[in-house]
Simulated assay, not measured.
Amino acid sequence: MDSSRNRGKTREGRLSAADILEEAPVYIWAYPTFPGPQAESKQANQSVFRQGLLNQLQREYQPWEQLRAPSLQGWVCYVTFICNIFDYLRVNNMPMMALVNPVYDCLFRMAQPDSLHKEEEVDCLVLQLHRIGEQLEKMNGQRMDELFGLLRDGFLLQDGLSSLSQLLLLQLIEFRAAGWKTTPHGSSPPTLYHHR
C-alpha cells in the first residue's frame, strides 16, 4: 500500500472520515452502469409481484357486486385500493394498462343513481378522480366522457341527493372542466369523516 493511502488511517488501520470523503468519487465512478444479475433479479421479482397482485385483484374483482352488497365499507376500501395500485404501480413509468378498465368499471358503479345517494361512495368517487382522473383520461378519454355524463346527469336529475354529495359532484365537474387543476378560488374537495 502506498504512503498516501496510509496517511489518514487510524491506529486500528481504518481510513478516517476525511479520507473516505476524499476518495468517495473514485469508488462511485468505479462501479459499472449496466444492469447486472441483481438488477435482472429485481426486475423478475417485480414482475412476479405485479403478476401476483393482479391475480389477487382479479379474484376480488370478479364478485365486486357481491362485495358491495354486504359491506359498503369493504366496497369503498376495495375501490380505494385498486385506484391506489393504479396510481402507484408503474411499468415503464406508465400506469398498468390491465387496471384501466377495472378501475373505470368500479368508478362507473359508484356513479350509478343508487350509489350517488350514499355519501361514502360519492366521497370515494370524488377523491379517486381527483387523484387519478387525469391519468385515467389519458388512457381512455371516451370512457371518462361517459363517466362524467353519468355524473352530470346524477347531479342535475337525481332527487334526494344530500347537499354534500351535490357539492362534491359540482366541485369534481368543475375540477375536470379546469383541466384537472384546482381553480384559483377553489379548494380540494371536502372529505367525509365518519365517527362510529
Rank of each mutant, 00 (worst) to 15 (best):
D153R: 13
L168N: 06
N93H: 12
I132Y: 03
S115A: 15
K181L: 03
V100D: 02
V26A: 06
Q38H: 03
D105M: 08
V48C: 02
Q46L: 06
S162H: 09
P184R: 02
G160W: 09
G149P: 00
E12H: 01
G52M: 07
V76A: 12
Y193Q: 13
Y104E: 08
Q135S: 13
I173T: 09
C77F: 10
H185A: 08
L156T: 14
S16P: 04
S115V: 08
L116C: 01
E40D: 04
L136R: 02
F108Y: 04
T182G: 02
L164R: 08
A177K: 15
E119A: 06
S115H: 08
C77W: 06
I85G: 00
H194F: 08
C106F: 01
T10D: 08
Q135C: 10
W29L: 04
D19C: 00
A98R: 15
R90V: 12
R109W: 11
G160I: 13
N101G: 00
G8L: 03
L136G: 01
M96F: 05
P189S: 14
V48D: 11
F81D: 03
P37D: 08
T183N: 00
Y27V: 12
I20Y: 09
N55M: 07
P189M: 04
G8Q: 01
Q62S: 06
Y193W: 10
Q73S: 13
H185D: 09
H130V: 04
Y104D: 03
Q112K: 14
G160L: 14
M144N: 00
R90A: 11
L164D: 14
G74D: 15
E60N: 13
V79K: 05
